[in-house]
Write a protein that binds this DNA or RNA. Structure first.
Lengths: 168, 168
DNA sequence: TTCGTTTGCTTCGCTTATCTAACTAACTCT
DNA sequence: AGAGTTAGTTAGATAAGCGAAGCAAACGAA
């Protein structure tokens, strides 16, 4: 197994890069279309992904892999745009809950998940076994990359894909 | 085939996100370690990936999916750090060639590709058929995502992986 | 209960990335 | 030669990100 075809590595890296780039690019376009920046959209999506539609700055920072200071500034902008609101926690008054406003929920409806669009449409067309295969591969790659970095918190969009091909 | 398990889509999206996030995070760390920012590092890598170790701002902008203005500013910083140099083109004097300096090449050696680090090491451990499987899956996903967006320019690092498991 | 410590968040000052619009110089085409 | 196109930069904004410092609430001994 150590006598591997080197081309394989290249090929997989190239493919990975294409995926990365396509997604990044797409994320930017999407956010722009929704009148938000990519980071802002991400925050919104994380919050929307929570069962109670709420998240503390700390949690956001962790899931996004940035500092709290950064989250504060992004949330400031979201507040200014009226898509979220800060609600001091009842139980622990050091904490703040960032919650989605109605406007915010609407904004999210407009701008669905970046990965979706192009990708999901194709994905659902595949045969069952192919999907299974793809998922397995992706998960494998993912675990190769974030090995030690725990969490891997979902962060999917709103009503996102819970109906896959059929919804919306 | 249209009666697909919806969870599959979710799972694949989650995995994709993990890959994305792991890479982004890693890119930041790496760049920081090399005293460069992620964008700067990317420019360096693209240039290094060219056979002649040179690229015009226009080409860089296209490959990175940003505007030329952005490239200008990033290149400015790279020049300030002495890792690249601007060389007016001989053939078309509107064009500028951004070339790697010796220092730049050295810097790249220090800060290898983000995807590599974490991923390649694991990849080469896999059995041959598994590698083949992964490559196929990744390429499939990639093509589902960037459908019309052509290029998919390699952009591999310096001596990158041309020896895969064996080098360095 | 009352300090000292930890924790959650914000503020401040700074750097970088990114965009659009405007500008300059150099090529191209007719 | 003059019009239009192309490559790059400049200028001026906004946004993301960081670290350090600050502040208030909560916690944990004593």
């Amino acid at each position: 197994m150590s006598e591997t075809n080197p081309d394989r590595v290249d090929e997989s890296l190239i493919a990975l890069r294409r995926i990365l780039r396509a997604t990044e690019q797409y994320e930017r376009d999407l956010a722009a279309a929704a009148g938000l920046s990519p980071a802002q959209l991400r925050v919104l999506q994380i919050i929307a992904g929570k069962p109670d539609m709420t998240a503390t700055p700390k949690a956001l920072a962790q899931q996004m892999g940035v500092t709290q200071a950064t989250v504060t500034s992004v949330v400031d902008k979201l507040v200014a745009r009226g898509v979220v609101r800060r609600m001091p926690s009842e139980t622990d008054r050091r904490q703040t809950n960032v919650i989605l406003t109605v406007t915010g929920r609407a904004a999210l409806e407009e701008a669905p998940d970046a990965l979706q669009q192009r990708y999901v449409r194709e994905f659902v067309k595949l045969a069952d076994w192919e999907q299974a295969q793809l998922v397995a591969s992706l998960e494998r790659v993912a675990s190769m990359m974030d090995a030690h970095k725990m969490d891997a918190s979902p962060v999917l969009t709103v009503g996102a894909i819970d109906g896959a091909g059929k919804r919306k």
